[in-house]
């Protein structure tokens, strides 16, 4: 069968239109064939909600946010959203905006009311349960438990206070004497401080003046101090060289002493060799005898010296 051009074109356009509409609805994540109805809520803080964010009941997506609009005159955010037609919201339903913007995306969570209640009409407001109210309701739920705990704590405190009172009431108790001693110490310290107030302040003033004088002097004499330090430095340097030459001298002296000790060299032999000493000793003795003899009878010697007279 030959299809006419009109049929081909018509079919192609029709299929394309259907595919476009269904495709957009599919990726918008709205049900392809069932409709939706509008609801809205008013919150103080939209927490980054934007159109297209999901509306969930117990974690299942049942709709999407259509419009988020700030109403200036009432300082409220009105959030319009759509709910799938097959979902009925009974009276008492509340909604919360939850989720973290960057991590999971923000969403509206619906908390359904009693299923026996009549439904909220499409287009009406779903009251928002703000986080604050949530906290309050949590508090109410936990209140009895909390009261019990507070009670037992108070009971304990009561006992403790009784004990303390007994301790304080007893005139011989350590606590009492310690307290009294502490009080008298404190009084003494206070008196001392009061009496010496002027002295202390005078001392402090003096210290202050001294330190400021010192600082003034230092700043005035900065140049000469610097010069003195540099001279001292130079003296230290020359002293260092002196020390090193002294050190080398000592070393040489050491070597000489070692040689003397060793017995080598003239001085060493003189010191160490007893033979030399003995010979010197006998020489001196001989010389002594010679001089004595010379004094006794110089003629004997002077005769020999006649040759000298020739001159």
């Amino acid at each position: 069968m030959k299809y006419s051009n009109e049929l081909k074109v018509g079919l192609a356009i029709a299929i394309a239109v259907v595919a476009f509409v269904l495709g957009v609805r599919y990726f918008k994540d709205v049900p392809l064939f069932t409709g939706q109805y509008d609801m809205y809520t008013e919150v103080a803080d939209a927490k980054g909600l934007i159109p297209g964010n999901p509306v969930r009941i117990n974690g299942v997506k049942v709709g999407s946010v259509r419009k988020v609009h700030f109403e200036q005159d009432r300082n409220l955010v009105r959030v319009d959203f759509q709910v799938n037609r097959d979902v009925v919201l009974p009276q008492g339903t509340t909604c919360t905006i939850s989720g973290i913007d960057a991590l999971t995306g923000v969403r509206i969570e619906l908390e359904l009311g009693d299923p026996g209640n009549p439904r909220i009409n499409p287009g009406d407001v779903v009251p928002s349960a703000d986080q604050d109210q949530d906290f309050a309701s949590q508090l109410v739920e936990r209140a009895p438990l909390l009261v019990d705990q507070v009670d037992s704590v108070l009971f304990g405190i009561e006992g403790t206070i009784g004990d303390v009172r007994g301790l304080i009431g007893d005139p011989d108790s350590d606590l009492r004497t310690s307290m009294a001693a502490l009080r008298s110490s404190a009084v003494t310290l206070g008196d001392l401080l009061r009496e010496e107030k002027s002295n202390i302040s005078g001392i402090l003033t003096n210290v202050n003046a001294v330190s400021s004088d010192l600082s003034a002097i230092t700043s005035q004499q900065r140049d000469s101090i610097a010069m003195a330090i540099s001279r001292l430095n130079g003296a230290m340097n020359s002293m260092e060289s002196t020390m090193s030459s002294l050190e080398s001298t000592t070393g040489q002296l050491d070597a000489i002493l070692a040689r003397i000790d060793d017995g080598s060299g003239t001085l060493g032999k003189l010191i160490n060799d007893p033979a030399l000493y003995n010979r010197l000793d006998s020489l001196v003795t001989g010389l002594d005898e010679l001089l004595a003899d010379f004094k006794k009878n110089p003629r004997r010697y002077l005769r020999e010296m006649k040759i000298v007279d020739l001159f």
Partner: peptide, 16 residues
């Protein structure tokens, strides 16, 4: 003008 959008839809559906 009429058929290009049709082809566009076809292209999108097939590409995705």
């Amino acid at each position: 003008v009429l058929m290009f959008p049709v082809l566009y839809v076809v292209a999108c559906v097939v590409a995705i």
